[in-house]
Amino acid sequence: MAKKILKRSDLTKLVASVGKAGGAFVAPKAVANGLVEYVFIKKADEIEFDYIVPGKSFKEANFPQTEVVARFKNDPEGVTVEGVELNPPRVVIFGARPCDAKSSESLNSVFTWDFIDEFYTKREDAMVTITVACTTGDNACFCTSVGIKPDDTDGSDLLLRETEGGDFTVEAVTDKGKAFIKEEKAVFTEGKATPKERTIFEPRKLDVDLEKIGEYLKDTDHYEGDLWADMARKCIGCGSCTYACPTCHCFDITDEGGFSETERRKNWDSCQFDFFTLHASGHNPRDRQYKRWRNRFMCKFNIYPGKFKTKGCVGCGRCVRVCPVRLDITEVMEEISGA
């Protein structure tokens, strides 16, 4: 049976149809010279097709950089507290990459670990992830080295593959994806034959062994080794890697506004900042930058796979691309794999 087709020219109809139903449409867009980001778009001609991965992942769609969780009012009558009631509209993520799609599983595992963070889950439930398999990449991409393929379906509701003619073949992955195809049947057409698909990109294969890295990190003695100080010495603690990372989940809770009216917000934070773990007493468990860097590595290759049974690193390469001092996580992965 021939695969269903989504014609590039039909995206106009799809964007309009999602919008008409009250949904929002997120897609890669060239927002500045050379910079592509996932943003809310209104028209299909805003969509950028020539990109590797957008600057940041689409985690902002279900884990916004800042969001109000409660509001307080202080007035002579007393104090009132009001929680935010979230009823997110459907959000269609178009042009996701398999690495980013996979990262949803990781964030979900943290935000639903025993206590359920409905600010996350409600948004995720309302999200339809339409992934486009990678036909392009760069030297920073390393998904196959962490067990993900450039045309993986995990975490996606629909997986699209570009055809030679610039359209897309459609693979429904989840029930949510199948339902979406039904709803938008005008744009998901069936042809007689499947057109020829473009070749999937093959990223460089690192010389890494995730199991070995996991074993290495399980040994608490290895926390003391010189490796961390040596390899992470150049880190300047800017936190760029954590903001760009699709699986980084750390946040702060802060009150913003005046004393009479305040919003309590959940804001992205970073384990790379020195204040992050600073105690009131002045003691700081991670008082050196290498310890903060070590924590991030530990989170990716021990805590996520060990505790949450999900991937801490999806190989998107963003941290490698954005690091201002070129501290390349893959070099540390390779070093430990060879240790």
Partner: peptide
């Protein structure tokens, strides 16, 4: 910050 295993610190 969160007390419920999410905020990561």
């Amino acid at each position: 910050k969160c007390g419920v295993g999410k905020c990561g610190r």
